[in-house]
Design a protein around this nucleic acid. Sequence first.
DNA 1: CTATTTGATAACTCATAGTTATTATTTATT
DNA 2: AATAAATAATAACTATGAGTTATCAAATAG
Lengths: 297, 297
Amino acid sequence: MSYQIELRHIKYFLAVAKDLHFRRAAERLFISQPGLSRQIKQMEDDLGVVLFERHNRKVILTKAGAYLRDELTLNLKNLEHTFYHAKLLNNGKKGGLRLGYVGSAMQDIIPNLLLTFRKEHPDVIFNLKEMDNHKQIEDLLSYDLDIGFVRLDRVPKELEIKPILKEPFCLVLPYSHSLNKESFKSLNQLKEAPFILFDPKYSTSYFEKVMQIFDDSGFSPIVSHNTIHASSIYKLVEHHFGVSIVPKSLVDHNNTKVKFIELSHIKQRTTLSMVWNTQNRNPVLKGVFDFILGVSR
Amino acid sequence: MSYQIELRHIKYFLAVAKDLHFRRAAERLFISQPGLSRQIKQMEDDLGVVLFERHNRKVILTKAGAYLRDELTLNLKNLEHTFYHAKLLNNGKKGGLRLGYVGSAMQDIIPNLLLTFRKEHPDVIFNLKEMDNHKQIEDLLSYDLDIGFVRLDRVPKELEIKPILKEPFCLVLPYSHSLNKESFKSLNQLKEAPFILFDPKYSTSYFEKVMQIFDDSGFSPIVSHNTIHASSIYKLVEHHFGVSIVPKSLVDHNNTKVKFIELSHIKQRTTLSMVWNTQNRNPVLKGVFDFILGVSR
DNA sequence: CTATTTGATAACTCATAGTTATTATTTATT
DNA sequence: AATAAATAATAACTATGAGTTATCAAATAG
């Protein structure tokens, strides 16, 4: 109870902490510089803590100030989420959910999952966003995302990860390619072909898994192109820039320019996993991933 | 950024949510009832959320209101902790730590641990409190405690638990008792003796472990008294109310009125564990239990 | 049917957030 | 060295709105 510090002080403090410049911070806040200075001063007095060292044309955060910058940023974000959810609850909704997913999950996994879910829980608002693996991790850590769907094996310890789908790989060949389901026996037959693969930075663990396939086949592929979209892979394959390997769920049945051969005899599987922040207090989160884990089991 | 809701609103809201009575809440806040009513109204308008249903002489929380009560309570507590730690940082301290422990850990474990720690980290402020197992769990969950030392095997999933000391049990007998280290072979020899034991509500898992000892010895003890303090056990034993079993660390070497026989041949061990809340953001917490786990290993 | 308990409304006041004008100090620029 | 520019703090003013008192409306209890 103790303090008469208000959210205003906290917001002002964070603004100054951000660009370490009173006048510019004041501008961004649409108030005058002296007004801002006084509020900061007041916060320092109330708290009994010096927040900034003001000297020689530069302002820097004290140790306590830096600590407060980090903690209060989080706290404020938390508040906003709380208010957002309260609003949804007020409107008879159960809550909102921000979902991220790698493009390769949108082909058919995510849509099916969500359709089923929405039928049972029409009162949860979804916000869907395609993002790469690392952006998802980042946003999960900063509480800007509730659930991510990634192709990663490991995530930072603040996050929890649960595999929801293991799938085999498929070979992608130009439609006119000499190999077909019957004549294809081993990857060795493609020893000389250039390969078009997902960019390693898309997911190192995914990339390493693909490389293991080549290792097991006893050769290193000639990698001619890296991309991050399945559709560009197919375009390149179609125009004979090379051949490729993709997760089975990315198979595009409508594409008549390329053909797919499932590598079911190969032991490697790629895993689509669900990730979330264990500290996330989103009220619908628990129910939702209970559901998803139930469906995917 | 959006809202012009202030901490004042939140504090007022929580006050009303607490006793569901505007006039009484206003009194507790030392403001007038109309003032409070207006602030709550304003919060509802700003938020676009109805917080209370006011009718027939009673005020009740809406769904959204109840959600906000829970979340905002936490959030406010969080803020207070943050300010508290900032103050410590400002004074050149690294932080503060609130420790709880069951009495039976104070005999020699906790003091030694803390003395060693204080030598290396004089800049951490301690706050020590003897509490029973369940009170510690409760306070850890509500963020009123940073680390607990308990004799429990399991804790709620929000908490993490790490055993730091396993120790055998000791028999406690009056000094003049006919049994001694040499003549004692088995608990069976005390089949007819009344036992003075720790109250089961002190810790069911501790109690069950003691009961297992009797099970393994093939008899059920006659339990004559329950207490929660080792010293009262010793007093009762001294005056021939019965005999007892206690963890080895509770042995009081200065007590000449009773004698202790270590039950090292018995497989049961009692475990003193450290517990903390994984969500606790106390900045010194991590360093501290790294230290404690290091020492106790 | 009166008395009492409740929260909302209305009108007032005073504390203070935010304003403009200015100063002190340090650092570029000539 | 002298001047100009940049910065945050200080001082004095103003106007918004938090908190006040007085009152009302509704709903119960005796």
